[in-house]
Simulated assay, not measured.
Amino acid sequence: MSPHILVVDDSASIRRMIAACMAHCAYGVATADDGAAAAALAQRERFDLVITDQVMPVMDGLSLIRTLRALPAYRHTPILMLTTEAGTDSREQARAAGATGFLAKPFDPDGLMQSVQQLLALHPPVSASSC
């Protein structure tokens, strides 16, 4: 069974681009357009990795990370923050909230895939295949 990944971004084009990258490795992907929708989805389904934007309506990425980390099923799930806010303060805030990794937008698809594969290698899903 391949890893199940949740992609959260208010930009439909970014969600599609990330999903296309994940499809290259046959990863299962679900998407949400804001943190609140993602938190609700994460309570209905179990994800092996979460990729989230920071700046979104309704609930931002930091709030989503804190919400997920409060759920027992997501205490150790890798969460990758992908955002245009790439400054040191943003990185520190993301790590303090519980993010496992951080990538700046615009992102290189190969760099994204490398980060995803590294995070999944550190926190492998049960019976998951690698790319």
Rank of each mutant, 00 (worst) to 15 (best):
A30K: 10
T31C: 07
T31P: 00
A32R: 02
A32H: 03
A32N: 03
A32V: 03
D34V: 09
D34Q: 12
A36H: 08
A36R: 13
A37K: 11
A37I: 02
A37V: 06
A38P: 09
A39T: 01
Q43E: 12
Q43P: 00
Q43H: 03
R44S: 13
R44P: 00
E45C: 13
R46L: 13
R46G: 10
F47T: 01
F47M: 06
T52M: 09
D53L: 08
V55D: 13
V55R: 13
M56A: 08
M56L: 09
P57N: 10
V58G: 03
V58M: 05
M59R: 10
G61W: 03
G61H: 01
L62K: 06
L62R: 07
S63Q: 12
I65A: 12
R66A: 15
T67K: 04
T67I: 04
T67D: 10
T67Q: 04
T67G: 01
T67Y: 00
L68S: 05
R69T: 08
R69S: 07
A70Q: 06
A70T: 00
L71R: 11
L71H: 10
L71N: 04
P72S: 09
P72L: 08
A73E: 15
R75S: 02
R75Q: 13
H76S: 13
H76D: 15
H76W: 05
H76N: 11
T77R: 05
T77C: 14
L80I: 07
M81Y: 01
M81C: 10
M81S: 06
M81I: 07
L82N: 03
L82E: 01
L82Q: 02
T83H: 08
T84A: 15
T84V: 14
A86F: 01
A86R: 08
G87V: 05
T88Q: 10
T88V: 07
T88L: 11
T88P: 02
D89H: 11
D89N: 13
S90T: 02
R91I: 12
E92I: 15
E92R: 12
Q93S: 13
R95D: 07
R95H: 12
A96Y: 01
